[in-house]
Computed example of a mutant assay.
Amino acid sequence: MASDWRDECRGGISGWKTLQGVERIARQPAWGYNASMKKMIITATLLAFSGLAQAGNFATCLLDELPGVQNNNAAGAAYQVCSARYPKRYAGVDQGSGRGFFGYESGAECALKHARDTKSLDAAGMIRVACNRLYDKPIGLFDDLKQSQN
């Protein structure tokens, strides 16, 4: 008959206590997971993906409301709704503020995706302006001079 772990522990109480300690350690995760660690993981995850859930602004409101709009009247209504929500309009949107790891490379790439199925020319134009504001790189004071010298 093959011996199991119980046979090895019958030799004395010290062996039994050692085995109980080994079992207790084996049941715990290797990296010491506890409630505070769980909170830290959740907080880090939320911070990492906070760029995905951007705080709303005028440009993102337009990108939410305008794609697929069929006529200019609906486009004008969407503009009014977003203007009421964000009275500063584009003044409240920093140039290039949508750029980031999960954003578009340029305003043109954004406009292509969002305006593709939009029949209203007004809506498509507003989408292009919003995308340019969010995803085109800001041009600095000296960038204009560098471009004119080339």
Score class of each variant (00 low, 15 high):
1 M>D: 14
1 M>N: 12
2 A>R: 12
3 S>C: 14
3 S>Q: 12
3 S>M: 13
7 D>E: 12
8 E>H: 08
11 G>I: 15
16 W>S: 09
21 G>W: 01
21 G>V: 02
22 V>W: 00
24 R>P: 08
26 A>M: 09
27 R>V: 08
29 P>G: 10
30 A>L: 12
32 G>W: 01
35 A>H: 10
35 A>R: 09
36 S>V: 14
36 S>H: 07
37 M>S: 08
39 K>G: 12
40 M>Q: 15
41 I>M: 10
41 I>W: 07
46 L>F: 02
48 A>C: 11
49 F>G: 13
49 F>Q: 10
52 L>F: 09
53 A>Q: 04
53 A>W: 02
55 A>S: 11
56 G>D: 09
61 C>W: 01
61 C>A: 11
63 L>P: 01
63 L>D: 10
63 L>R: 01
65 E>D: 13
65 E>I: 03
66 L>Q: 01
67 P>L: 00
67 P>R: 05
69 V>P: 02
69 V>G: 06
70 Q>P: 01
70 Q>D: 04
72 N>V: 09
72 N>S: 14
73 N>A: 15
74 A>P: 02
79 Y>K: 11
79 Y>S: 02
80 Q>Y: 08
80 Q>K: 12
80 Q>N: 13
84 A>V: 06
86 Y>K: 02
88 K>D: 13
89 R>H: 05
90 Y>H: 02
90 Y>G: 06
96 G>N: 04
96 G>Q: 09
99 R>I: 11
100 G>S: 06
105 E>G: 10
105 E>K: 07
105 E>H: 05
107 G>T: 04
107 G>Q: 07
108 A>Q: 13
111 A>W: 01
112 L>S: 15
114 H>Y: 03
114 H>Q: 07
115 A>W: 01
116 R>W: 01
117 D>W: 03
118 T>V: 03
118 T>Y: 01
120 S>L: 03
120 S>K: 00
121 L>F: 00
121 L>Y: 00
124 A>H: 00
125 G>N: 06
128 R>T: 06
128 R>S: 10
129 V>Y: 02
133 R>Q: 11
135 Y>V: 12
135 Y>W: 13
136 D>F: 12
136 D>W: 07
137 K>V: 14
138 P>C: 13
138 P>W: 05
141 L>Q: 12
141 L>E: 13
143 D>Q: 04
144 D>W: 00
145 L>F: 08
145 L>Y: 09
146 K>R: 11
147 Q>R: 04
148 S>L: 10
148 S>Y: 03
